[in-house]
């Protein structure tokens, strides 16, 4: 094969792959703009009414806020637990460090649906903890492994003697952490936050069983809505969510080369 035909074959294969991976998004963007009361593609007439309707559906608004709050506060809580853990696992020769690592990583290995069910049955039902609190804790635990992993990898290159140097220059241990460690792992912490946020926001299986009257995360709400109505608003909402994720990732990539942490 000569060079130019090889190049052509190259791009044909990549074009097909990318069409398969990304094409569907273009389709839902257009399907959400169809001026029909049912899903149609190609769209019959273009309208923005479904995109606007998304914002007026009361349950979408409520579940969007819940998902947002879970993603933000769940991830913050996970960082609050995860950053000190990552720090300690990197710095100290702890007895049972491997066990701690495994326990903290466990939520990645256990399928989410099982976690949701287990929490519902053995936490919410017996202790009367609210579903919202259970959701919050489940999402925190879900994001925790990512927080520990990403922060650990950014702490890995940070030598311990840098903190010792700071202490010898007059820092307390805490000051050495805030003035020397934190500024140097800021990128990792931010990346962990974004990764955690996206993971939590998109999460379905964990939240599946953890829903109650008026308490539903957005993806679950969308699933429920789809069972009743077949209008293009879910397509419109899917498209909007895709844009949101893309925007977050794009900004993160521009700001800190996010992809090297994923």
């Amino acid at each position: 094969m000569n060079t130019s035909s090889r190049l052509l074959a190259n791009w044909v294969i990549l074009g097909l792959t990318l069409t398969f991976l990304i094409g569907p998004f273009l389709i839902i963007i257009l399907a959400g703009a169809s001026d029909t009361s049912y899903l149609a593609f190609p769209p019959e007439g273009l309208t923005l009414k479904w995109y606007l309707k998304v914002f007026t559906v009361e349950s979408f608004r409520a579940s969007f806020l819940l998902s947002m709050a879970l993603a933000v506060f769940g991830t913050l809580a996970a960082l609050l637990l995860g950053v000190p853990a990552a720090y300690a696992l990197n710095r100290y020769a702890l007895p049972g460090a491997e066990t701690i690592r495994t326990i903290v990583a466990a939520p990645i290995i256990v399928p989410g649906i099982i976690v949701g069910l287990a929490l519902l049955r053995y936490l919410v039902v017996p202790t009367g903890v609210t579903v919202t609190l259970a959701l919050f804790m489940a999402h925190t635990a879900l994001v925790l492994p990512y927080a520990v992993r990403v922060v650990s990898s950014s702490m890995h290159n940070l030598r311990a003697d840098m903190e010792e140097a700071a202490v010898l220059l007059g820092c307390s241990r805490l000051q050495a952490f805030t003035k020397v460690v934190l500024p140097n792992i800021r990128g990792g912490v931010l990346a962990a936050f974004i990764l955690g946020f996206v993971t939590s926001f998109n999460q379905v299986p964990v939240s599946l069983f953890l829903s109650g009257p008026g308490v539903r995360t957005l993806p679950i709400d969308m699933l429920a809505y789809m069972e009743i109505t077949f209008d293009p608003s879910v397509a419109a909402l899917s498209a909007l969510l895709a844009f949101m994720s893309l925007a977050i990732v794009f900004v993160a990539e521009r700001l800190l080369g996010f992809s090297r942490y994923v």
Binding site: L81, G82, P84, A85, Y87, A88, L89, R91, Y92, A93, L94, A97, T99, I100, I103, V104, A106, P107, V110, I114, V115, L117, A118, L119, R121, Y122, L123, M137, A138, T140, A141, L144, V148
Partner: peptide
């Protein structure tokens, strides 16, 4: 002790919210 104080909260949280309920299930 200092190191464990930093690492254990995460481990305990995961144990209580994950390992125990999933184990019972």
């Amino acid at each position: 002790r200092e190191g464990l104080a930093l690492a254990l909260p995460a481990a305990i949280f995961s144990t209580l919210l994950f390992l125990v309920p999933v184990g019972i299930l």
